[in-house]
Nucleic acid binder design. Sequence first.
DNA 1: TATGATGCTTCCAGTCACCGGAAGGTCAAG
DNA 2: CTTGACCTTCCGGTGACTGGAAGCATCATA
Lengths: 135, 135
Amino acid sequence: MNIKDVAARSGLPAKTIRYYEEIGLIRPLRAANGYRAFRESDLHKLAFLGRARSLGFTIEECRALLALYEDETRASADVKALAERHLDQIAAKIRELEDMQKTLSDLVHACAGDHRPDCPILSGLAGTDQKDCCA
Amino acid sequence: MNIKDVAARSGLPAKTIRYYEEIGLIRPLRAANGYRAFRESDLHKLAFLGRARSLGFTIEECRALLALYEDETRASADVKALAERHLDQIAAKIRELEDMQKTLSDLVHACAGDHRPDCPILSGLAGTDQKDCCA
DNA sequence: TATGATGCTTCCAGTCACCGGAAGGTCAAG
DNA sequence: CTTGACCTTCCGGTGACTGGAAGCATCATA
C-alpha cells in the first residue's frame, strides 16, 4: 500500500503519516523505488494513533499506549493509569475553560453592545472595576 | 521602572514582556543605558494584556482589544462582538473536551485495571470493539 | 578601587504536532 | 513520448512563549 491509500483508510493526512514515521511511531517498509510500503499492521497502528490523538493523548502518550498495545504481557492497570491521568488533565482543562466562560459571559452580559464607547468588558480587562475580573 | 518591577507588578514574566514589545503590543521608552524604561501606561497595558490572555484571547485578539481600549470613539458593540466570538470558541472547545471525556471515561470504567493484559481501552483504540470509540 | 552578584541587553534555539510548498524522481495511461 | 498523478526529501512556518548563552551596566561590599 502506498501512502495515499493508507491516508484514505486511516483518515490521517499523508503529511502526518510521514511525520509519525519520522518520530518513530511507525516503521513502514520501503519498496525498491524508495516509496513507503505499508503493511496492514502499519495501517492498524495508524488508525490506533488517530483514535488516541482524537481523544487528546499527546504524541508521547500515544507512543506509550502503542507500546502497551504491542506488549502481550502488559497489565491493564498500566493502561488504565495512563488513561486516568489523561482524564484528570481533560477535567482540569474543562474547569479552566468554564472559569473563562463564566467571567467573560458576565462581562458580555453587562455590555450594552451599542454605538457608545462605554464598555464593561474593557473596564474589566483594564482592572478599573471594583470587582476583580480574572483569577 | 525597569523590567523586573513591571514583571512583578503586572504578573507577567520579563521574557513575555520583551516578547510583547517585539511583536508591537507595547512600546516602552529606552533609558540612556539601553534599558527599557516603562511608564505607568505601559504597566497598565501589560496588566490589561495579562487579563485578556488569561481569558483565552489570542494575541491578535488582544491587539484588537487594546486598540479598542485606546480608541475613545469605539462602539461597545465591536468589543461585545469580539468577546462573543471568543465565547463561542470557548464553548466549542468545552464540548470537544466533554466528548473526549465521555468516550474515555466509558473505556476507563470498562477496564479492570489489574495485572491481566486484557484491556477495553486498548481494544477501543484499536477499533476491535463492536461499537465505535471515537468520532 | 576591586570584586562579585545582580540585572539588563540581544540573539539563537527549542517547544508541540503538524502543514505548505518547492525541487525533483517514478509510474501508468494514452 | 508526454502528461499528469503520485512519491520522495528538505526547508520554513505556526502560537506564544521559554531557556540559555554571551556580553554590558549597576550596585553593594571589602
